[in-house]
Design a protein around this nucleic acid. Structure first.
Length: 476
DNA sequence: CCCGGGTCTGGAGATGCAAT
DNA sequence: ATTGCATCTCCAGACCCGGG
């Protein structure tokens, strides 16, 4: 079977060239009897379905819920009840297109409006940017690309400087942009990575170094110029400590005692882990405010015992204590956050999931006693097509201290649905899905609409990648 | 019951293209 | 490393199943 697909014809490519509609995946609840329980039951049903030619997967934690490719035909349908998909606007009470972006001098309908508007908020009036170029071709091209958009960017003070030594990138104030050749990036990646990681140590909580692949830059055509410029400008503002734009949820969510109001005043912790050749496992976390400002990056080494990713309980406890300390610190200075959301990707494997969940749960409990609501959320890119702009809600079910549920969510630009799994002490199942949509928007380094990674996790993954590259060339 | 081969799965890396 | 995703290839493990 071709990788990436659960069934053969028509595959995605054929569908596109012949304009065939993709098979709609549907969600079903098994209503019949099952002798086994939990996962075992799910496995058995999946098997039975496969025997009659129906490919289905079950939702972890909900062993009676199945996502089938296409419809379950009679007579098998009798044992199942369909969980219908609905338009996101109905399921969540707002539409993704109703989100607007506040800039310093006006409101935009897309983050790309950073090209014509000023950033929402900056710490200083002048933003010093030095563009270090390895060869003058890069300088010429970059100037050409940015020229049309710099006229109204009064805060930006841009200087160009020939890069003599890599060490030039270690010093100085403001944001540094390094235009480097593919060759230099390959040959000196370890050194560059060390400089890059060092640049994270500023009080701003972000890297102040933006690396640009000069050879790729030269290949950008007229069509790509705008996109490149917008992404780069937004990243430069972000790295200068600005908030490029304020993500505004639709009015009706921002009114009254709607839980969505909490999203702007929440504290977000993105967690991720990275592996290296030398046997280390690094866990990292980034703490982000509800406006998208980064407070801290932190990381911790774990020893892994060979193949498996089992964590040492004590090490893990220490890591979580560090995070806890940072949250306390924030609370002392700014008051308790309106919500604490821990977001992770599915990079975690089953065993990690189990060992990480336990210590974290102690952390949640302590927050609970202080009255800070907690949301734990992970997402996962599926291959299910439930229709663009649609959502399916699975659960939630009551668990100790809150609710646990799953969403399948396919935003208008997504090729496939994303699966959100959450635990929340706020018993409002709409909040996690809203939080996910909100967190996607807070990524100031990627303005494209089809991204699925929420901001804090994206930052963590990039940080980890650089960190690992500082001592492990082979992970380049 | 164990063992081996076939099959499936997921991850990583390379490449190409499209993005409001 | 502007980004991200789709696609493809390769590869290592996991899983399945039948034969001894």
């Amino acid at each position: 079977m071709r990788p990436g697909f659960r069934s053969t014809p028509p595959n995605e490519k054929d569908r596109q060239s012949y304009n065939i509609k993709p098979v709609i995946s549907k969600v079903y609840e098994f209503t019949g009897q099952c002798n086994e329980k939990g996962e075992e039951c799910a496995k058995r049903i999946k098997w039975a379905l496969r025997k009659v030619g129906i490919e289905a997967r079950h939702i972890r934690g909900f062993s009676r819920i199945f996502v089938a490719e296409g419809e379950i035909p009679e007579p098998y349908a009798a044992g199942f009840k369909e969980i219908p998909s609905q338009p996101i606007s109905e399921a969540l009470g707002f539409d993704e297109h109703d989100i607007t972006y506040l800039f310093g001098n006006g409101r935009g309908i897309t983050p790309y409006d950073i090209l014509r508007l000023e950033p929402y908020k900056c710490h200083s009036n002048v933003i010093d940017v030095v563009m270090y170029y390895e060869n003058s071709e890069y300088r010429k091209k970059l100037k050409e690309l940015l020229r049309p958009y710099l006229l109204n960017k009064k805060q930006l003070s841009i200087k160009y400087q020939k890069l003599k030594w890599l060490d030039d990138l270690r010093h100085g104030q403001g944001v540094k942009v390094a235009l480097l050749s593919e060759n230099a990036l390959n040959r000196m990646l370890e050194t560059i990575a060390k400089i890059k990681v060092g640049s994270y140590k500023s009080e701003l909580g972000v890297s102040t170094l933006q690396i640009v692949n000069g050879d790729k830059l030269l290949k950008i055509g007229v069509d790509g110029a705008e996109y490149f410029a917008a992404n780069l400008l937004s990243a430069i503002y972000f790295k200068a400590g600005c908030v490029p734009f304020y993500v505004e949820l639709p009015m009706r969510l921002n009114a009254g005692d709607n839980d969505a109001l909490r999203l702007h005043r929440a504290l977000y912790i993105g967690v991720g882990i990275g592996r290296s050749e030398s046997g280390y496992v690094k866990a990292a976390a980034v703490i982000m405010t509800g406006h998208g400002e980064i407070l801290t990056y932190l990381h911790h080494d774990f020893r892994s015992n060979g193949k498996s990713m089992e964590f040492d309980e004590n090490e893990l406890k220490k890591f979580i204590e560090i995070i806890e300390g940072e949250v306390e610190n924030f609370a002392r200075r700014h008051g308790e956050p309106a919500l604490l959301a821990v977001v992770r990707s599915r990079q975690f494997h089953e065993s990690e999931w189990r060992s990480i969940k336990r210590p974290f749960s102690r952390f949640w409990l302590s927050l609970k006693s202080r009255g800070v609501p907690v949301l734990l959320m992970s997402w996962y890119d599926t291959k299910d097509y439930i229709g663009k702009g649609n959502a399916v809600q699975i659960g939630p079910k009551e668990v100790k201290g809150g609710i646990h549920g799953v969403w399948l969510l396919q935003l208008s630009k997504f090729k496939h649905a994303v699966q959100l799994s959450y635990y929340s002490t706020i018993k409002n199942p709409v909040l996690p899905a809203t939080a996910y949509i909100y967190l996607r928007e807070l990524d100031f380094t990627s303005l494209t609409k089809n991204r699925t990674k929420p901001a804090p996790v994206k930052y963590v993954h990039k940080y980890l990648k650089w960190l690992i590259r500082t001592y492990d060339r082979r992970n380049a």
